[in-house]
Design a protein around this nucleic acid. Structure first.
Length: 265
DNA sequence: CTCAGTGTTCAGTG
DNA sequence: TCACTGAACACTGA
């Protein structure tokens, strides 16, 4: 479920477990789609022998820095994830596309089931697309109420599509957008321009709150508050929220949107 | 067997 | 040119 909280959780995992370690070997899957323009052998050559010195993230994009120029960009698509496991693990994650074998007999592994993720070797990730095209990351960057008001008032589409716009709120994805609208009690189909100042301020407050809570929980869904829409939004078989409100599914902003009309009127 | 889906990009529309 | 919409991508699981 890689939206901002999941990617931030993986960044912290890499920061804690891999920074300071040297890559003694690299396993690269034969997958031209995930590796994009990078030839697998080039990637292997660049990474082998390097020491990981840092991690960074913006929105849903994660990258590693090293003791020499060049950065490893990781994007997870809809089904990617990052793992640390022992060398020779009997039951390693499936669909591993990249394995960095560290100097302490552990592996930092990038997994991508649906092959929509991307792995690239770049000079400076933050200076080029897609990361350079992102707007502020609500948890990393200052997201002032005034800026949000200005931006949303200039938009013509629905509030749901604005929340998903990475130039406005980098890292917000489909479940977070729905959760924020549920918490802020707003109909996802409302036009941005029709929202009152009070409603936009509430939206911003709930956005920061949902992101902060999800990151504090280590993106572990089981520990998200019981009342969150999250727990019922994944199956259309669910008919009600934990609070007992009728649940509805509509396509808004081109994405499946779960919401509770009686709360979000 | 069919179809929806946590994300991004790009072609098409107005 | 801009803002926005919808399809495509690849694969899994309901």
């Amino acid at each position: 479920m890689p939206e901002l909280p999941e990617v931030e959780t993986w960044r912290r995992l890499a920061e804690r477990e891999a920074v300071g370690h040297t890559i003694v070997d690299v396993t690269v899957a034969d997958d031209k789609k995930v590796f994009d323009k990078n030839a697998p052998q080039t990637l292997r050559h660049k990474l082998k022998g390097r020491t990981i010195t840092g991690t960074d993230r913006r929105g849903k994009h994660l990258w590693l820095t090293f003791d020499a120029p060049g950065e490893l960009y990781l994007h997870f698509g809809m089904t990617g994830s990052l793992h640390v496991f022992p060398e020779g693990d009997e039951d390693p994650p499936s669909h591993l596309k990249l394995q960095l074998h560290l100097d302490d007999d552990r592996v930092l592994g990038y997994r991508c089931v649906r092959r929509i993720g991307k792995v690239r070797w770049l000079k400076e990730v933050a200076a080029m697309p897609p990361v350079s095209n992102l707007g502020p990351d609500p948890l990393r960057d200052d997201l002032s109420a005034e800026w949000v008001l200005d931006q949303l008032r200039a938009k013509k589409g629905t509030i749901k599509s604005a929340l998903l716009n990475q130039k406005l709120f980098a890292g917000v994805g489909n479940w977070i957008a729905d959760e924020v609208l549920y918490q802020a009690r707003l109909d996802p189909r409302r036009r941005c321009g029709d929202l009152s100042e009070k409603e936009i301020r509430s939206l911003r407050t709930q956005l920061l709150r949902v992101l902060k809570k999800a990151v504090e929980a280590g993106a572990d869904a089981d520990t998200f508050p019981r009342t969150w829409l999250f727990h019922v939004r994944w199956s259309r078989k669910n008919t009600h929220t934990a609070r007992g409100e009728a649940l509805r599914f509509d396509t808004v902003g081109g994405r499946t949107t779960a919401w509770a009309p009686e709360r979000q009127g």
